[in-house]
């Protein structure tokens, strides 16, 4: 069995940065006196950063904004994308579908980073504003995925059968269609989260939505770049944590999908045979569930 292994790998890789982000702030001691910039050692496990703060403390503090904003942005994006996608997939009114989806297509055409920079230049956002912005640029993609997945589910006879039973729209959309597309959505949410992390980190790196000396992994990477060759930990550790978070969440989603995949597609090594039935296997042309 390979599945627990994949879960474990995903959980381990994503677990460290997540735990740091959630629990880290509780372990931070009193901010001590500032030391010299970019000193390795000297009572600081990971040295000091560009303004002489303890890097370990910064690492412990800096996860929360990145993770929270990314998670909030993903959740927000789905909050909008789900109803929009479901309604436009289930309606038979062409104009309604067009009204809902067309504006999103326009949004899709604008590069997300450009949009982020433009809006941030006009209205400098805080953390909440950043979450809203990232959510806004994720909505078109998410809505299209929801609509495409839901349209397939909505064309199944089961939906017609439910209509034949006089079921309410809510039961149809959420109870059946929503449930059927859960796997696709779970996979997409993973990708969406990765994308949100990327955007949030990039925004922080570019100084959007955060103070220049904020405790934030992405800001750390940016600000401590100058001392990369003197005190690499101040860059390497937060960068690795961001990478681990993205990779781990993707692995987790993958494993979850695998777990939900229908049986019957298991590798052949699970077939035990005694004595082995030997048939030369032709190029595989198909299998039945």
């Amino acid at each position: 069995m390979k599945r627990p292994g994949r879960y474990a790998a995903g959980a381990a890789v994503a677990g460290v940065p997540l735990a740091l982000a959630v629990l880290g702030p509780f372990f931070v001691g009193e901010p001590g006196a500032r030391a010299a910039s970019f000193t390795p050692g000297g009572g600081h496990w990971l040295g000091t950063d560009f303004v002489g703060r303890d890097v370990l403390d910064q690492v412990l503090l800096g996860g929360r904004p990145v993770v929270l904003v990314a998670l909030a942005a993903t959740a927000l994006a789905y909050l909008v994308a789900l109803p929009v996608g479901l309604v436009s997939a289930l309606t038979h009114r062409r104009w309604l579908e067009e009204t809902l989806m067309r504006p999103l297509d326009v949004l899709l055409a604008v590069p997300s980073l450009l949009m982020l920079l433009l809006v941030a230049a006009a209205f400098p956002p805080g953390a909440v504003g950043l979450a809203l912005l990232v959510a806004l640029v994720s909505v078109p993609d998410a809505a299209r995925i929801v609509r495409a997945a839901a349209a397939e589910a909505a064309s199944r006879p089961a939906v017609e059968a439910l209509r034949m039973q006089g079921e309410s729209w809510w039961r149809l959309a959420v109870g059946y269609v929503g449930r059927s597309i859960l796997r696709t959505l779970a996979a997409d949410a993973g990708i969406r989260l990765t994308g949100a992390l990327y955007l949030v980190a990039t925004a922080a790196f570019l100084g959007i939505g955060v103070a220049p000396d904020a405790s934030d992994w992405a800001v750390m990477v940016d600000r401590n770049r100058a001392g990369l060759f003197i005190q690499p930990w101040a860059v390497v550790v937060p960068a690795l944590l961001i990478v681990a978070l993205t990779m781990g969440s993707n692995l987790l989603v993958d494993a979850a999908m695998e777990h939900r995949a229908p049986a019957g597609r298991t590798p052949r090594d699970r077939v035990r045979s005694e004595p082995a039935p030997r048939a030369p296997v032709p190029p595989r042309k198909g299998r039945r569930p």
Binding site: V271, S273, P277, A279, P280, V281, P282, R287
Partner: peptide, 25 residues
């Protein structure tokens, strides 16, 4: 499907299947 060497997932198979030449499905 046994002729093709295909079995359901998690199947316990006993007996013998001998095939000469390729099988199409």
């Amino acid at each position: 499907l046994a002729l093709l060497g295909e079995y359901p997932a998690g199947a316990r198979v006993t007996g013998e299947v001998v095939v000469h030449g390729r099988i199409g499905f």
